[in-house]
């Protein structure tokens, strides 16, 4: 059993990735993210990894496939909050996620979202209001 915390902030979908996910839970998390995009019409999905301390190649594949699927739905995945040790292990493993954008934190993610909105898609109306959606599986 695990809890995923998916929050909506402006046109950003905030996903707090839990510390230790089993492989099948990873698949379920991906499904929930896709559902939430459909539900809110979010343009950007921010995967917050600050709680994750082990990231192996399966996890890398999850980030990569989620990013591709989200792209197909016309949105974009950015990642944030990867711990230094996790990054060190990832690059030594050879897992550099070349097609995924990363930002330092939520501020930068919001700035990026806004710049995307201004450059391209229509900005969403409900600006800083946060809606919380907790899924249990």
């Amino acid at each position: 059993m695990y809890f995923t915390n998916i929050q909506k902030l402006e046109n950003l979908l905030l996903v707090a990735v839990p510390q230790d996910l089993m492989d099948d839970e990873v698949i379920q998390l991906r499904r929930e993210v896709l559902q939430a995009i459909r539900q809110y019409g979010s343009q950007v999905v921010l995967l917050d990894f600050s709680r994750v301390d082990i990231c192996d190649s399966f996890f890398g594949r999850f980030i990569y496939s989620t990013s591709k699927m989200v792209e197909l739905m016309g949105a974009k995945v950015i990642i944030a909050g990867l711990q230094d040790i996790v990054i060190e292990t990832m690059v030594e493993l050879g897992m550099t996620l070349p097609d995924v954008d990363a930002v330092l934190d939520l501020d930068d993610a919001l700035a990026l979202t806004r710049s995307l909105s201004q450059n391209g898609g229509a900005p969403t109306e409900d600006s800083a209001e946060i809606e919380t959606l907790t899924l249990e599986g």
Partner: peptide
């Protein structure tokens, strides 16, 4: 290259 990829994953 590894350092640069690491920096990118940190958002820089």
């Amino acid at each position: 290259n590894r350092t640069i990829q690491a920096a990118r994953l940190k958002g820089a």
